[in-house]
Design a protein around this nucleic acid. Sequence first.
RNA 1: GGUACUCUGGCAGAACGGUUAUGCGUGGGCCUGCAAAGCCUAUACAAGGGGGUUCGACUCCCUCGGGUACCUCCA
Length: 463
Amino acid sequence: MKLQDTLSNQEKELETTPKVRIYLCGVTVYDESHIGHARTIIVFDVLRKYLESKNIEVNFIQNFTDVDDKIINRAKLENVSAEQISTKYIEHYFSDFDGLNVKRATNYPKATEHIQDILDFIQKLIEKEIAYVSKNGVYFSVSKFPEYGKLSKKHIDELQSGARIEVDEAKKDPLDFAVWKFSDIEPTWDSPWGKGRPGWHIECSAMSIKYLGGNFDIHGGGRDLIFPHHENEIAQSESFTENQFAKIWMHVGMVTISGEKMSKSLGNIKSIKYVLENWGPNIIRLFCLSGHYSKPIDYSEELLKENLIKWRQVETAYYELVHAIGANSSENVPEMAQKSSKDFDDALEDDFNTHLALSAFFTLVKETNRLAAENHLGEIESKTIMPELQRMLDILGLNIPKVLPEQKQDIDKMIQDRETLRKEKQFSEADKIRDNLNEMNVELIDHKGKTIWMKKEQIKADL
RNA sequence: GGUACUCUGGCAGAACGGUUAUGCGUGGGCCUGCAAAGCCUAUACAAGGGGGUUCGACUCCCUCGGGUACCUCCA
């Protein structure tokens, strides 16, 4: 698989043996997660599921930043401890992302549980004279890392000229950043240099190296993390290991609303809770995968609606396959299915182009529905197509709503009753049954010979 | 101001130096008791402006312009 690497600005081949090691910068747990977080995490979820579908072992680490000024401020505001805040939002995180059908990472390390690793890391930087102790904390000395700026393509001199006049004269250089902040405000930990808490960037360096070793395969996150977060991580980590940090830097574009980034100040944040309630996981996933991961996508209800229509086609195809009541086809169905499947993989192999992969997926959906409409979707066709369709559904993390066996019996009974009424031309009674089923999100499809049903995902949003 | 990304048909969105992208939408049709769903078919002058390279450019180069992000915390 080729992936665009932010650092070299080139496509690089992902090495998949013996396994793939991925570190994804997760969220700071001080508030609800939003659709922007969802996008980044869904992109990596699909990447991971795809690799695993190829029997590649993936060690997927995603951190929680659970010590941070924003958490502390929030705690103060709500008059609770910082830990209560972070615990609460970690719980919310999992309920959101389980709801989005995101597979749990191999591990979710937290900064607060790795203080000793962080202290060891800092100690070594001090010993190497790359970090220094000052009045307010321990700082990383940017001038000791000549390649500083290589990820974000910034020039140090320009940064300095543009930098604001630093209030903190304890720093030797305005660009230097804290790896340890002295503080008496809880949470704090003792350190050889003074009581305090870790700086933001150090946790990711310490934890990624701890869990994945130096020189792991993919380091990812949102584009907005390139500077300063990832730039600083590189500086710390490569100073520490004297080796290349991550092989590929993969950055996911922002989700915008009316062309603008979501932000608190603009008040245009769409929480995952909100979109999940209104649209459900499948449509959100389709939306998040609808563009190339590196580019921004613009959130709008219209686009979600478009994805809903596409999703209905998927549901239809799936249930046509389940029932497969047609005669056999004279077409080369296996070839068609294999082509879609191959196009799907090819698209993902080429810089993880999910949009093209979705095109291939929808081609299979469309062909299935065409065969059904032409009454040529029989059992043989179904057995050929279903595994391919299911494979793609699994990789994309899409779930067809299923019904329980006992519900199924009820549905079949209702369809039979309706059939009888229709034969007796009691159409208004027959339509009542259809309406009742509709309320259960069960839609009937009247084919020439036989009526089949499909279970539809419930959508709350106004259409 | 600096850096990066970006500008494709009503909307979304790819690929590619020369071939219909695709989807949604829209028009028409098939199916149906009527619907719904699905299918078929038609529909687009597409390429921010201007130059250049080329037999040929949306695709390469230059230039001008627009947008977004980052340069402080941010997925």
